[in-house]
Design a protein around this nucleic acid. Sequence first.
DNA 1: CGAAATCATGAAATCGTTTTCATACTCAGA
DNA 2: TCTGAGTATGAAAACGATTTCATGATTTCG
Lengths: 328, 328
Amino acid sequence: MATIQDVAKLAGLSRTTVSRVINEHPYVTEEKKRLVSKAMQQLNYVPNSSARRLRRQQTETIAVYVPRITNPFFSHLVEVMEKEAAKKGYQLILCQTRYKKEQERNFLELLKTKQVDGLILTSIENDWSEIEPYLAYGPIVVCNEYSDSAQVPLVFLDQIEGGYIGTKHLIEKGYTKLGYCTGDHKSSRVAHDRRIGFLKAVNEAGLQMKDEWFFGGAYSVQDGKNTFEALKQLSDPPQALFTGSDEVAAGIVKAASDAGWKVPEDLAVIGFDNQPLAELMELTTVEQPIETIARQAMELMIESIRSKRTSVRKEVILPLNLIQRSST
Amino acid sequence: MATIQDVAKLAGLSRTTVSRVINEHPYVTEEKKRLVSKAMQQLNYVPNSSARRLRRQQTETIAVYVPRITNPFFSHLVEVMEKEAAKKGYQLILCQTRYKKEQERNFLELLKTKQVDGLILTSIENDWSEIEPYLAYGPIVVCNEYSDSAQVPLVFLDQIEGGYIGTKHLIEKGYTKLGYCTGDHKSSRVAHDRRIGFLKAVNEAGLQMKDEWFFGGAYSVQDGKNTFEALKQLSDPPQALFTGSDEVAAGIVKAASDAGWKVPEDLAVIGFDNQPLAELMELTTVEQPIETIARQAMELMIESIRSKRTSVRKEVILPLNLIQRSST
DNA sequence: CGAAATCATGAAATCGTTTTCATACTCAGA
DNA sequence: TCTGAGTATGAAAACGATTTCATGATTTCG
């Protein structure tokens, strides 16, 4: 492998000048530039990035935390982030926390050991106090999740509003017996807020709720199917169901159709996300502007890296909107 | 930030000894080990990975190429690879080629500039001769795709067999007028082989084909819907359709149902992949053992990195199997 | 008991860049 | 003609680790 020294020798110049050419420093004559370029080509030279990283104290790499990349919501987020990062000369390291506190903590070392310039969290497993100390080693941006105490940029969606407009829609459609079915991930602010939005709409309309109309722990298509089986057993089932994801909604619709129920006549269902699957199943759903939050988060990240200012809290809240199809 | 020098000073020892403790070198007395550990803790020291990379000439990072991470097949592949890599102390850099030759070539520089120890390709856009020279800079493993001339480990599925068993199944079910609907991605060996398998089964059974029963360029759910619309116009449509992906199959089934066709009575459809969506839509499909190929590819990669032998061709061919549901 | 092998440590070289500092040359303005 | 600003270059320091080499001390063994 050719080094900068080899190039310098072949061009009859110093390492310094070669480095200047590479980094487009002014004060290099055209003639030397040509000489250097020629030598670099002849030797098929490229700068060694480990050396460059060491000297420059930056890696041009960003770590992105997701629970699991197979979740379409997160893979979409990552797709956009990678594209945006590549555009600005950054690479992405993928970290799957698998919803585990410990996994998340392990990956935090990446920042400390200077393997990445910054961290984007799309989910938060640990208490913020566990994460906070790592801010000393580089910027952190939170995307999609929310934390009260985090002194960092936060890009997230107005989930209260999301819960509210979805529920409002059901109410306007004339349903009065509403069920609620989500993943209720303990620490997640997202789930918490949606529930508030749901209850707000319900209370405004003066509707009655029953405890048995709350279904929890639902994440997958299969969970949706199970939820329907449970619902079917009720003597007084809800007429409409608010769900926390399109997968769950799809599972419910499928199971209901298979059982001979008509959607939305016998049971209306509203999803969340507007995934490709929602279109396939013709689900009414609350669309999350994934591209926008991903892009915003990445922009804030790169800005934080470049400016080197100390991290400050900054909230970017984006709206959600309803997409009406035939499941309600 | 504390450096190894600071630790050495605090512990009253040399950098060398500290380094030995970090790297678990023998020939360090227990006493000094304690001293060093204590100093490291006091200073909250962690080794700087850029420096370590430079000296060791390795990065403990692997680049994975996928066309798009939102494609569930690839996100599943990446999920397993990341998990496997993390287990062995490696990180993953995600590279989305977006089916573009140029993007793919750009990312190849990662290997040359020593930002990664190796490359795993899950799709190949460029001619192998474009990629081959980069073997000089580190190992490459091909996963899922196939190339005749590549002198590297290749982990892939027997797509001829896949096309064959899917088609055979349709024939055994009694269908005699078979359609073929895939993405026909020009350079892809995968698509090519499946077609061969399809034709083999058709010929063995002595069935007649019509040109109009071949549908191309279908990748998405929407493409599937469009395909059905086209098929509907035919005066003599096929009874059953072999498709290249579950998305396409799902689109066809959906459009058919909406048009009042019964599946499989009026039109049978078989998918490919066994994605979650296939279960939801109850698609018969050809399952690809994604976890296995991902794990195998990652193992071969890490082995190649560690052994430092020159790359040799090695084919690992895994079988596919049929999952029967109610769409056929 | 003396030589060889093993254990324990540190000084200095090394990895391949970028950056700082010093030096020299050119040219415009007083 | 002298001064100071701008231009162009290179020597050497720095980034922070690991590895080689050298040197003692200690143990083993014939």
